[in-house]
Write a protein that binds this DNA or RNA. Structure first.
Lengths: 240, 240
DNA sequence: GAGTTACGCTACGACCCGTAGCGGAATAGT
DNA sequence: ACTATTCCGCTACGGGTCGTAGCGTAACTC
C-alpha cells in the first residue's frame, strides 16, 4: 500500500488538555494547565497520546460548531478537520456531547470578576461578560445542546456540572465576600449549609436570567438590561 | 415485485399508538386543530389533511421523547410509532426541531396562575408549577434541544418564541396586575415601553432561574427553594 | 363525474455511525 | 539494541437515518 508520508506532529504549541472521563483515560504529556482532574499519571508503558491531537480536535470542534451548529456537527467532520483519524477521536470521546463539553468548557474559565468598587458594578460587569461569552456561536449552541443531552444521560450531566457549571460559582463566592467586606451584604449565617444554598441560589438567578434573556427570549443583553437586572436583584421587585 | 401485498388500511394504523395524553386516536374521528399553525384554512380544494394524523404524530413525538430522548429521536421512528408514512411527516414538518416545538408547545399552555392571595404565594406557586412541568422528560429534553437548534436557525427561533416563550409572559402580566391591585407593587410607569421591559425582565429572571436550577445545576426545585427564591426576588440580595 | 390534494408504500443515493483489523510509530523497561 | 506496550493513520464494513421521488389510491370540492 502506498505509505503516505505523514508529517507527524505539527509544530503546534499544545497547551490545553482535558482528560477524558470515559473508559480509557490515557494521558499524554500534560504540558499546560490541567484543571481539576489531573491525577498524577505514572506514565504508562506504551506510546503516549498526542497532546497535539487533543488540541487539534478541540479546536476543530469549536470551529465546526461555529460553522455548522450542533445538529450538523459530526464526528467524521471533526476528525477530518483536525487532521486525525476517526478512530483516534473515538478512543478519547465516546460521543459527540462529551467531546463538545470538553471543547467549550475551557471558554467558560475565561470569566473573571475584577473589583469594580461596588456590588452593583461587579454584578453589571459579570453579567455583561457572561453575555459576551454567550454571544459566541460555539458557546451558545454548545451549552444548550449539551444540557439537552444531559437530561437523558446521567454521566454527561455530571460531566457538565463538573466541567462547566460548578466552576463558575467561584464568581459568586468572590463577589459575595467582596461585598461583605464593603458592608454591602450581611455576613454569612452560622449555618454553612445555608450559605451554600444562598450561593447556589444567587448563581442560578444570575446565570439563569442571562441565559434565558440571551438564548430563550432572544433579546440583547446590553448595559441597559444589565443595569435594570442589577437594580431588581439588589432591591427586589418593588425597586424595578 | 411480486404480488403486491396491500394491507388493509385500518389494520395497524392506530394500533401502536400509546398513552400520549390519554386520548384515543380513532381513525376517522376529527380532532381539534394543531395549535399555532395555519390559522383559518380556507378549505382548500382537494383531500384535506388528516387531523387524526396530526394528533397521532404529535402524541408519538412526545412519547418517543420520553423513551429515547432527543438525540435518538428520529423521524422514521416517529412515523412508525404514529402509524403514518414518513412522507406524510415531512409534508408537515421539515425538520425534527420544528416537529418537537409543536409537540411540546401545548404542554406549556397548561401553566396557570390561580390567585393565591399574595404576590409571594403567587410567585411560589408558579415557580413550583413551572418546575413540575420541567420535570416531565418530554419537556426538559425538548426545550433545551430546540433552543440549542434555534441558536443557528432564525426561523426556528421565531417559531420557539411565538409558540412557547412569549405565550407565558401572560403569567407575569397577570400576577403583576394582581399585585398592583393589592398594593404590593407600584403602578405602571407612564412609559409603556418601560413597562414592557420590566415585564420581560421579570419573566427572564423567574423562568431563567427555574430552568437553570432544574436543568443546568441539576438541583431540585422544591417548596424550600421556591420560598428562598421568592424572598430574594421580593426583597433583593440583602434579604437572602 | 372532473379536478385536486393527501395518503400509504416502496425505493433510492447519500451520508454518518461505531468498530475491526492492519502496518507502523513512539515510548518504557530490560 | 531488543522487546513489550500503547497509540497512530488508514481502510473497510454492516447498519442505520436522511430527505426525496414516484406510484396507485383515497377523500374531498366544484
Amino acid at each position: 500500500m502506498g505509505a503516505r508520508v505523514r508529517k507527524g506532529v505539527r509544530g503546534w504549541v499544545s497547551v490545553i488538555h482535558l482528560t477524558g472521563v470515559g473508559v480509557p483515560v490515557g494521558v499524554g504529556v500534560p504540558v499546560g494547565m490541567v484543571p481539576a482532574m489531573a491525577p498524577s499519571t505514572p506514565q504508562r508503558r506504551g506510546r503516549p497520546r498526542s497532546a497535539a491531537a487533543d488540541r487539534a480536535i478541540l479546536d476543530a470542534t469549536r470551529a465546526a460548531l461555529v460553522e455548522v451548529g450542533w445538529s450538523r456537527l459530526t464526528m467524521s467532520h471533526v476528525a477530518i478537520r483536525a487532521g486525525v483519524a476517526k478512530t483516534t477521536l473515538y478512543r478519547r470521546w465516546g460521543a459527540k456531547s462529551e467531546l463538545v463539553v470538553d471543547a467549550v468548557a475551557v471558554l467558560f474559565d475565561e470569566l473573571e470578576l475584577p473589583d469594580r468598587g461596588s456590588l452593583r458594578a461587579d454584578i453589571e460587569g459579570v453579567v455583561l461578560s457572561f453575555a459576551a461569552l454567550l454571544e459566541r456561536p460555539e458557546t451558545k449552541t454548545a451549552l444548550m445542546a449539551v444540557i439537552a443531552e444531559s437530561t437523558s444521560d446521567e454521566a454527561l450531566r455530571v460531566r457538565v456540572r463538573e466541567a462547566i457549571v460548578d466552576r463558575q460559582k467561584r464568581l459568586v463566592v468572590e463577589g459575595r465576600v467582596r461585598a461583605q467586606a464593603r458592608g454591602e451584604l450581611p455576613p454569612d449565617p452560622a449555618d454553612g449549609d445555608e450559605t451554600r444554598r444562598v450561593i447556589d441560589l444567587i448563581f442560578d438567578v444570575i446565570a439563569g436570567a442571562v441565559v434565558h434573556r440571551a438564548l430563550v427570549s432572544d433579546g440583547v443583553v446590553d448595559s441597559g438590561w444589565a443595569a435594570r437586572f442589577t437594580t431588581l436583584l439588589l432591591g427586589g421587585l418593588g425597586a424595578a
